[in-house]
């Protein structure tokens, strides 16, 4: 066991964990925003795939990674808007329509991949940027402050989202729309518009989450490359109690343990690989069971809003 607690291993876990957490952070914070306003969007996985595809395709064709991010964000917005139309205006059952959106994203991204690329290609993605001074701190400087821009972006998103949700009027409206939409409506605030904004923003972030995989972390596109990450992101929102900081701790816990289990295998700790692979899930379930705070769930979550009905 002692070989696990050496400096290179701990730094390695920190570095890989931060990278693994990045797509979860974008997707889960976007989802937290939508859920706080009262809408459950299970289409995150599909939006991530479309974001990963469009980000990669545009970056490959134009050679401009920022255009790739823009494309992923735009596609995410469009799909978020689509989800808003279905769940808010048409008031469809949110769980089922979200799964429909996931299947749609999976199918369309695979189809487009086949039509436009056909084979897996790799590109040169965002390069790491060493932050001056901080990056020179011995040991941890390189691990914490030498990442690509989308990794930094994901972590900056946490305080930004916290501030927006807790300190701005918009954030107050969002939270109120998720707790008591009728009361919000009676104050003359348009619940429908609030929810449209949060779902569209959530879609945009899910699109960027996909792009963070395809043009910043792994730098290629393969069919179904998100492999269920979107659903883990939805679980992280519950885990985090609908607070961005909670989402961050959940994403980091899951990612660090995933990084740890790889090191357990590399360092030949006598643990079957099947068990090692399960560790992140087991630990997440244990923490979730111990720290469950049901009171935090937005009261109107997954309930369609109709004016005048209560």
């Amino acid at each position: 066991m002692s070989e696990l607690f050496t400096l290179p291993v701990l730094l390695g876990i920190l570095y890989s964990g931060i990278r693994l957490a990045t797509p979860y952070l974008y997707a889960a914070i976007g989802e937290a925003l939508a859920q706080t306003s009262g809408v459950l969007n299970l289409g995150v996985e599909g939006i991530m795939l479309m974001g990963a595809y469009s980000g990669f395709y545009v970056a490959m064709k134009t050679g401009n990674l920022w255009l790739g991010v823009l494309a992923a964000a735009a596609v995410g917005c469009i799909l978020g808007l689509l989800m808003a139309v279905i769940s808010v205006t048409l008031q469809a059952e949110q769980g089922i329509s979200g799964i429909g959106l996931t299947l749609f994203g999976l199918g369309l991204s695979s189809l487009l991949f086949k039509e436009t690329m056909g084979t897996v290609n790799s590109i040169s993605g965002f390069q790491p940027i060493r932050i001056p001074l901080l990056g020179d701190i011995p040991y941890i400087g390189n691990v914490l402050f030498n990442h690509n821009i989308l990794v930094y972006g994901a972590f900056i998103l946490v305080p930004v989202a916290t501030w927006v949700l807790n300190k701005t009027t918009f954030g107050l409206k969002v939270r109120a729309a998720g707790q008591n939409p009728q009361a919000v409506d009676s104050l003359g605030i348009n619940v429908v518009i609030i929810r449209y904004i949060t779902i569209t923003l959530g879609g945009m972030l899910a699109g960027i989450a996909g792009a963070s995989l395809s043009i910043a972390l792994i730098n290629l596109f393969q069919e179904n490359m998100t492999n269920g990450m979107g659903f883990i992101a939805v679980a992280l929102v519950y885990f985090g109690g609908w607070r961005p900081v909670g989402v961050l701790s959940g994403a980091l816990l899951f990612s660090f343990v995933n990084a740890l289990q790889l090191w357990i295998q590399v360092k030949r700790i006598p643990l079957p690989s099947d068990i090692a692979v399960m560790l992140p899930y087991i630990l997440t379930i244990i923490v979730l069971a111990l720290a469950m705070r049901r009171t935090q769930q937005p009261a109107a979550l997954a309930k369609p809003f109709t004016r005048g009905e209560s």
């Binding site: 429909g100 996931t102 299947l103 999976l106 199918g107 189809l111 086949k114």
Partner: peptide, 8 residues
């Protein structure tokens, strides 16, 4: 959605 995904 199911149709599109089965297409692919």
């Amino acid at each position: 959605a199911a149709f599109l995904s089965s297409c692919a």
